[in-house]
Structures are given as C-alpha cells and as structure tokens.
Amino acid sequence: MPAKDAVRGDGPRPRSRVLAALLAAGGQPVSGATLAEGLGITRAALWKHIEALRRDGWPVEGRPHQGYTLDSGAAGRLAARRFVPELLEARRAGARLGHTVHWLAEVGSTNDVARRLAEAGAPEGTVVVADRQAAGRGRLRRAWWSPPGGLWMSLILRPALPPEHLPLLTLAAAAAVAEAAEGLAGRPVQVKWPNDVLIDDRKVAGILLETVSHPHGAEYVVAGIGVNLDVEGEPVPAELAGRLTWLAREAGRRVTRNELAEAILQRLEERYAQLHQEGPGPVLAAWRSRAAWLGEPVRVALPTGEVAGIALDVAPDGSLVVEQAGGRRQRILAGDVQRLRPAGAPPGAGSR
C-alpha cells in the first residue's frame, strides 16, 4: 500500500472484500454475478478488483460459465513470502478489530500513523503495519529496535470504559499477545509488568498504549504492539544481546506476520470484549496466570527514586503491589521492574 494511503480511514478496501468472498468459497468457483451482487458492486468494478488481486500475486482463475476460483493454498504461499494486508483484512472481515489494514514499507512509528488516522476519524479496529520502523518507541520514550522481519503493528481502539479501567488495556493487550505467541510457539510465554512479553525471561514482544482522553474517559487509544518475529540479516545491537529472543527461533517452525497478526487481533478482541462486558476480573486473571516474577524480590525504578520489595500482585487498577521491608505495601502505576537475584546467584538466576 503506498504511503498516501496511511491517512485514509474509509474502511476495508473492496478488493479485500472480493478476496474474502473467494477464500470463503474454499476453492470452489463463484460466478461473477454472485460475487458482484453479494458485494454490492458492478461486474465492471468486480473485474477491476480481480485484476488488482492478480497484479498483487493472487492466482485467481476465471472460466466462462463457471466463475472465479482461488486456490485455497495460495493465501499461505503468498503470506509466506511477504505481509499481505488484503489477506489480513479478508480474514478479519466483519470483526471488531483488524477489518481495515494500512501497510507501509517503512515509517517512523506506526503509533504516529495510527494517531493521525484516529484524529481523521478512522474507525475502531483500524490497523497500521510496517515492515520497518525508523523511530519505533517503547515506554518512557525509549527507542524500540524494529528491523525488517518483525511485526510492528498499531491498532486504534475507542473504548467505552470508565477512566479507572483504562490502565487495564495494557494488561489485556499483553495477555492477548502472550496467548497468541504461546499458541504459535507451542511453549510457555509469560508477561512482565506492565507491558513486556517473555519467553525464558527474554523479551519477545512489548506493548505501548497511548491515550487521548476527555473528562469522562478515552476519546481513543492507540495500541502499539511490537513482536520480535524474525530478524532479516541485521545484527542485534550490543545493548540488547542476551535480553531478547525471536518467535521464529522459539517456535521451531515458520510463523508468518499475517498469521501472527491475525492471532493477536483475535485474542485481543476477546480480551477487549471481556473488559467491557465483565469488568476487570477475567483480564486480571488472564494476566496473573502468566505473570513473571510475582512473589519474587524486585526493584522498581521510579522518577523519584526506587522501590525494592516483593512483587505481590497487580491491583484492580492495574498497578503493581510491592511489599517493602517491614510489611509496607506500595502501589506503583508506572516504573521499570528488575528482578533482584539472591546473593551469589549467577546472572539470569531467579530467586526461586
């Protein structure tokens, strides 16, 4: 998708709807008349969309008196080579999240693009994906290394939640990413308060939520999700060596960006709906079930100093509860958490 499309907010592209209809047919031919009528477009417009799909590499066959056919294996083969925004739109057609996808080869930050789309009125569930971020960022404005091969994705949310529940969106997103990653990797995935996703204590993904609020809640939220899926030929920066991992390495099989994005959006839609319909309970339970370092000694760096103690739990407002020496408990809304090793323990050892 060209860069100019990054300011559109007009819903799924017609060719994605054509692709969804062909995929739904499961390899069986569908007549042009049936496709055009079902999509509410003319036969001439349908032909133009079919030609656009063919130019993008989709092997759509058209036979007189039979209709159009798409090989059911074509989607997987195409997605194995590159990210395909039309495929993600087709898979998420009718869903709350992921129905509209804007793809760019390179961008400063997908969160910035998504924010411009939100300001222009883009609907909830609109997604921005980039092959590479030149100025990706994490919490506290830290730079986020975003080489080709990873999944760098931002999502527009327009939650109808009370202000006190908005911080739980970060926990919901972290739990959803962990669930999706575990399903694809086939091995345990944990979450570290508040927004890191870990495999064997190495970071595989992170979440950055940026909220534009009004007095009664959020006008919109941009949920930035970065997953270290693979690294295509770029050396890992020295300061990150040993601290991160890649889903492709952990999964032991090829995982495409389309597959990963679809899995994350599906799990996040479920957690997002739970938060609206059932309140904080299910989201907190899902996060706690994967929580790293709860019950262990930690140090939390704050703008005003640091707090050391036992990481006991997350509170209903999403804050981290730390029990300090003497039994005093403190709730922390924002900070950097580090695990404290017992005296004499080797680097990387936990306290269990």
Rank of each mutant, 00 (worst) to 15 (best):
E306W: 06
E296G: 01
E234L: 07
G38F: 08
G98W: 00
V322Q: 08
R331N: 05
T69M: 13
R328M: 07
A21V: 09
T100L: 05
Q277H: 14
S319E: 13
G108V: 07
R187P: 08
N258S: 14
E262K: 09
A178I: 09
R55A: 11
E259D: 13
T170L: 00
T304W: 15
L169T: 06
L312R: 12
P59M: 11
H214V: 07
V84S: 13
E37Q: 09
L140I: 10
R96K: 06
A178Q: 02
R257T: 08
P2E: 09
V314P: 02
G149K: 04
G38W: 09
L157E: 02
L157F: 09
V283Q: 03
S72M: 13
L104M: 14
S109P: 00
P316N: 10
I264R: 12
L333C: 11
V177N: 04
L104C: 14
L284I: 02
A130L: 12
R17V: 15
E164D: 06
N258R: 15
A90V: 01
A134C: 13
E61I: 05
T211H: 15
R158D: 04
D71S: 11
P237E: 10
R271L: 04
V236T: 14
A263H: 07
L88H: 05
R55G: 12
G32N: 07
G125K: 05
R254V: 12
P342V: 03
G217E: 14
A130P: 07
V30I: 12
V84M: 13
L78W: 04
G309T: 03
E182F: 02
E106L: 10
E61Q: 13
T69A: 11
R267T: 00
T42D: 07
D5W: 11
L161Y: 14
P342F: 13
A205R: 01
R253N: 10
V255K: 05
G150H: 06
A286V: 05
G318I: 00
L268W: 11
P14S: 11
Q133L: 03
A223V: 13
A292T: 12
P123M: 03
V255S: 08
D317R: 11
V298T: 03
L140K: 12
V314N: 04
P12E: 06
V300W: 00
G138A: 08
A105P: 13
R299G: 06
P148H: 06
A3D: 08
A325C: 04
D10C: 15
D230S: 11
A118Q: 01
L302G: 15
T42H: 02
V314T: 04
T170C: 03
T304E: 15
H216C: 15
G67E: 05
S351G: 02
R8W: 14
S319Y: 11
V222K: 01
R132K: 12
T304F: 15
R339A: 09
H165W: 11
L97N: 02
L166N: 04
